[in-house]
Amino acid sequence: MLFACVSQAETPDEIFSKAGAAFAKQEYGEAAYGLRALSAGNNWSHGAQHNLGIVEWRVARPGPAVLAWERAHALDPFDRNTIANLRFARSKANLVEPERLWFERYSEWLPAPAWLGAASLGLWGGVLLLVMPRLFGTRRADWHQGVAALLLAAFLLTTPAMMGLYTRGNAGVVIEEEASLRLTPTTEGEPLAKLQGGELARIERERGDYLYIRAEGDRAGWVKRAEFEKIWP
């Protein structure tokens, strides 16, 4: 068993390589085990999440596959392979293309660290350029003001993306096939609808082992926590 014991001594890069080797030998279960362990250990990278999605798809788990590709897409929005795989999964599984709010789509233009860096630099760079000459007792030059205006404008441009990043934090994926959307957060809760594995939804409330989620088409109800996973846990 290739991943019978993912020891602590193994680096994420080594586990990634072994998963690739297992995949090449069509040992998809083994590959999935290693990549899942990486993801669960908060060792995220675009490549690992992308490959995890492919492996999960191979072992016929569309929900976890879409989840992994959504994570990969969040880490690297420019990778066309990940976008293609998400399109492929939604086409094959007849999943509804989720409608995202405009600021969420905007936030997908760049990776989250880029938006955060730009916002920090824009705000504090502009403020410092305006304040520093006064603090150091020097005269505020024209270029100080020009650059400060540019930086503050950049900050203003990042604010919708920041809002998008915040709201995307509540988005998740149905990971179990035929997950029941219930009227009440109880085992005996009346099932309102079934959600397909791989469907995107947004968490609105949490209670015990249940999450109140809203999927595409305003299908809202309680699902078991085990049947739904946040894209950004």
Partner: peptide, 25 residues
Amino acid sequence: EPALTGLAEKPGSWSGSPRLLLRNF
């Protein structure tokens, strides 16, 4: 027809969940 792409050959830079990044930010 949409098709499944190949594996990524390199893992890329390792990080945690973007939620942690937001918290640290």
